[in-house]
């Protein structure tokens, strides 16, 4: 049972590759229709099935491990001071 239309097909009619579809899914840019289509596709496509888990894991890892550097505590004060010096009131 193939769905009548691949909702990933762009206006130019070109058939999307697995990688292109996967990227749209991973990045949360897919429409509901596209998500539904991809879920079906993933059941039949082993490369997508494997890549999906890996790509999501990397994305999560990046988010949790690379976002930790909070700004120095005095930075906001310094910025505010600079602004008040530069704007005569």
């Amino acid at each position: 049972m193939t769905p009548p239309n691949n909702p990933f097909i762009q206006a130019d009619g070109k058939k999307p590759t697995c990688m292109e579809m996967l990227q749209v899914i991973i990045d949360g840019e897919a429409t509901n229709e596209q998500q539904e289509y991809f879920k079906n596709h993933m059941d039949r496509c082993l490369p997508c099935f494997k890549s999906y888990d890996l790509d999501m894991a990397i994305k999560r890892l990046l988010k949790t491990k690379c976002c930790g550097s909070d700004a120095p505590t005095d930075l906001v004060e310094q910025i505010k001071m600079q602004i008040s010096q530069n704007t005569p009131s």
Binding site: S69, A71, P72
Partner: peptide, 19 residues
């Protein structure tokens, strides 16, 4: 500010430059 600092740090790879 924290997102901005993190972005600056990831670009420059230096905390003073990021600041």
């Amino acid at each position: 500010i924290n997102s901005m600092y993190n972005f600056g740090f990831r670009l420059t790879l230096d905390r003073d430059d990021a600041k």
